[in-house]
């Protein structure tokens, strides 16, 4: 009986050990992949013919979906907050709450989530298919560096276009929220906007856009890494696409938390007597 328990324990410890080793190895491989991409960005900028399609795919093609989700999130925020704020007689402060939430948190996170779902998965699937069908090997065999040719333009496109998408999500969310608050709930427009202007500062807008740069970089790196290390066959490509979204989303949430803490501390340091919403 004791021998059996010991055997089970040994297997359990061995499994955990193997898992830990594999995790450390994957993290190391990911770090090398990121450093390699940054090195290629410094040594040789991507060519126009690879960068422009990536910019179009990441930026222009994602605009409609980001705008649509931004609008609806703004309207939902108005619907959810109105009842409570109206009961307290603070209906005119709704603009400040909706716009602050959107500009500082929801705008960048929403744009990044849509980018991870729409573009990140597509990038992982595309690169994964190229890996499975030996197109990445073909690229290398012709003397081109796959990271420089495939990853660097996608990384630059994500980092350059995500601030624009974030601003779009912010703008459409603010428009949607004001439409519902002023148009449907009949909140006074003058007070709605003056309260917004009072509490939402340029620094809040900067925080959202600044955070989005990190989200864009994380999405590009995670998705390209998953595509490059895709398993064999259609199953491997499917797994890579799913994993790219899941890991990108986890990275977005983790980065959001740490950046929020850092930026709040920076704000407290720069403006110790910040305003209050109530």
């Amino acid at each position: 009986m004791l021998a059996n328990v010991a055997d089970v324990l040994v297997v359990w410890i061995a499994d955990w050990g193997r898992m830990m080793i594999e995790s450390v190895l994957s993290m190391g491989a990911f770090a090398v992949f990121v450093l390699d991409t940054l090195r290629w960005l410094v040594t040789r900028l991507p060519r126009r013919e690879t960068l422009l399609p990536a910019l179009y795919q990441v930026g222009v093609s994602s605009l409609p979906v980001v705008a649509l989700t931004g609008t609806f999130i703004g309207m939902v925020l108005a619907v959810q907050s109105y009842a409570q704020f109206e009961q307290l007689g603070l209906g005119t402060r709704l603009g400040a709450v909706i716009n602050m939430t959107l500009v500082r948190e929801l705008g960048p996170v929403l744009a990044a989530t849509m980018l991870a779902g729409r573009v990140g998965s597509a990038m992982a699937a595309e690169l994964g298919t190229m890996r499975v069908t030996e197109q990445i090997d073909a690229l290398a065999s012709m003397g081109s560096n796959p990271i420089s040719y495939l990853v660097a333009p996608r990384f630059l496109a994500c980092v350059l276009m995500i601030p624009a998408l974030t601003v779009m999500a912010d703008f459409m969310g603010i428009a949607g929220g004001s439409f519902f608050s002023v148009g449907i709930y009949q909140i006074d427009m003058h007070h709605y906007w003056s309260n917004s202007a009072k509490f939402v500062s340029e620094f809040d807008l900067f925080c959202g856009v600044f955070k989005s740069l990190f989200f864009g970089a994380a999405i590009a790196m995670v998705s390209c890494y998953q595509g490059f290390n895709c398993g064999p066959g259609a199953e491997g490509v499917g797994r890579a696409a799913t994993a790219s979204f899941v890991y990108s989303f986890i990275m977005i949430l983790l980065l959001d938390l740490f950046l929020a803490i850092g930026l709040d501390a920076a704000e407290d340091m720069l403006w110790p007597s910040g305003g209050s919403l109530i």
């Binding site: 190229m130 069908t133 197109q135 090997d137 073909a138 012709m142 560096n145």
Partner: peptide
């Protein structure tokens, strides 16, 4: 290694053509 690989020509089992490019662009790639 990249410079050395210009001295190689590799014909892949399933051709490994870039499917986002036309045949002309594929052949012109190197």
């Amino acid at each position: 290694l990249s410079l050395q690989r210009i001295r190689f020509g590799f014909v892949f089992q399933n051709a490994a053509l870039f499917d986002s490019m036309t045949i002309g662009q594929n052949v012109a790639f190197p």
